[in-house]
Amino acid sequence: MAFEQNKGSPNKDMENEKDNIPDLVIIERVLKGETEIFEVLMDRYAGLVLMVLKKHLPPDQIEETAQEVFVRAYQSLKNFKGQSEFPHWLSVISVRTSYDYWRKHYRNRETPMSTLPESHRMWLENSVSDNPLHSISDRSSQKEAQEVLEWVLADLSAEDRMVIELVYLQELSGKEAAELLGWSVANVKVRSFRARKKLEKKLRTIMERGN
């Protein structure tokens, strides 16, 4: 019976075998020319890359950027020295690719959004009140919340935006953010302080005078 249970199709066995190969071995094999095995790394870490990208990019840009992240990772695989874990190395590439997206996007943007729709203003007022009318986990409210967040961040530079998202919204330490962005810790601290002030100023302006 036990034998019957263990007996699987050859394809399934091969897949299981691939799943158990350590990252470093896969990397070595890819570098020796086994391009196809890179797909195992992609399957293994697609979730991680998507999770990072979803936090930093608009939904319609996630798939294209995920593709770019893995292509970049493949091209830089030779530089992976194993000093950090492969998933961490991939997270760094994901964050930096997101940053590159915003730099390009801000360079090409025409005019920033000028007004906040009435429904979003209502969300703002509701979220600051002592007794919110509806929970912010409500689906439509969630969408408004994300649009307000996007509207608020749209005025910041690509650098300020990334630092706000990492340090302030995701609550990473200055050191962690610096490592992900490839900046010095001092630069991250100064920039996050200034960006946060800008963000607070904008929020106050919206709430006090309307937009």
Partner: peptide, 25 residues
């Protein structure tokens, strides 16, 4: 302001719920 910032933080984390296909792979 703190309440609003908390709500925006939640909005940021909720972004993870976006569905993404597999064609990009």
């Amino acid at each position: 302001l703190n309440r609003l910032q908390k709500a925006l933080k939640k909005a940021h984390f909720d972004k993870e719920q976006v569905d993404v296909g597999t064609v990009w792979k």
